Simulated assay, not measured.
Amino acid sequence: MAKLSAKLKAIDYPGISTFDESDEKCLRRLVVWLEENKLCLYKPKERADLKKTNSPTWNEAFKSYCTLCSSPISSDEILNHIEWLLGTAIRKEYNKDKVKYDEKSKLALETSTDVPMIIPSNNPIDNLDVNSCEFKEGVESLADILNISKHPDHIVTLEAIRTLIAKRLNEECIKDPLSVLPKGEAFPLELVKTFKNKSSNPAVEQALKVLRLVQVHRLRDLQTCINECIVSMQQITSNPKTDTKLGKVGY
């Protein structure tokens, strides 16, 4: 009701003090008032059926009116349609004198004393200046310790550090370091095929080979996840749970 009252106040509805959204007669009177004073989609003579608020055919007249208004509401509830009509009336009223309302809004924001209080955080991380020289130097030092290549953007470098720590330096990995170490022989980079049209720049060619290996690695991880999903589904379908109490022998 508070939301509806705010909209009624915005359009200066005269019956706001006695308005009851649970009373269908009040809703019908509001529709007539909106059409006569704000929306004005009908000519005066065409409003006859809409103004017969006690008529048993009023709902049909209102349905036709909503179609004329291009209402997107699919619900049969009159209140839902009225909320949309109120929004349309407010938007139309605003567009009539946009400059005046914009100036009032700006003045209200400038003179408003309802400013939220910001409580200082005790968490030192929240008070970090990520663009300070000290922070950048700290990220670069940490990248050197972890043997991570540095990116021109220190935030990207920090993200790489976070990924490495999450995957290789978590609690489980520290307990069993061998579980996360790559197994098998390293694949020779010179055997990696890139594209038919090779780059004339050796550095670019090497980078393309690395990117292809990374893509293959990601595809293998994806295939592993798919296989795990298939196995899980097979376990469910191959061992369905049945309730033997529901069984019946004979007729």
Rank of each mutant, 00 (worst) to 15 (best):
A6D: 15
A6M: 14
A6K: 14
K7D: 07
K7W: 04
L8P: 01
A10W: 01
A10C: 01
D12C: 09
P14M: 07
T18F: 06
T18Y: 10
D23S: 13
C26K: 03
C26R: 07
L27A: 04
R28H: 03
R29A: 03
R29Q: 15
L30K: 00
L30E: 00
V31E: 00
V31R: 00
V32T: 13
V32S: 07
V32R: 04
L34A: 07
L34K: 00
E35V: 04
E35I: 04
E36Q: 15
N37Y: 10
N37I: 05
N37G: 00
L39Q: 04
C40V: 15
L41W: 08
Y42L: 15
Y42A: 09
Y42M: 11
K43A: 13
K43D: 10
K43V: 01
P44E: 10
P44K: 08
P44I: 08
K45N: 13
E46Q: 15
E46F: 03
R47K: 14
A48L: 15
D49I: 03
L50A: 08
K51W: 06
K51I: 05
K52T: 05
T53S: 07
N54P: 02
N54R: 14
S55F: 07
P56V: 09
W58T: 02
N59C: 10
E60Q: 14
A61V: 09
F62G: 05
K63Q: 11
K63P: 00
Y65D: 01
T67C: 08
T67R: 15
L68S: 06
L68V: 06
C69V: 08
C69R: 06
C69A: 13
P72Y: 03
P72W: 01
I73A: 01
S74E: 09
S75C: 02
D76N: 13
E77C: 08
I78P: 00
L79K: 10
L79R: 11
N80E: 09
I82F: 02
E83A: 08
W84I: 00
L86P: 05
T88V: 15
A89L: 04
A89H: 04
I90K: 01
I90Q: 03
K92H: 13
K92E: 14
E93Y: 06
E93L: 12
Y94G: 05
N95L: 15
K96L: 11
D97L: 04
K98L: 14
V99T: 14
V99Y: 08
K100T: 12
K100N: 08
K100C: 05
D102F: 12
D102W: 07
D102M: 14
E103H: 12
K104R: 12
S105R: 12
K106S: 13
L109T: 09
E110P: 04
E110N: 10
S112W: 10
T113Q: 15
D114Y: 02
V115W: 05
P116E: 03
P116G: 03
M117K: 14
I118P: 00
I119K: 11
I119G: 02
I119W: 10
N122F: 12
P124D: 10
I125C: 07
D126S: 12
D126H: 12
D126Y: 10
N127R: 14
N127P: 03
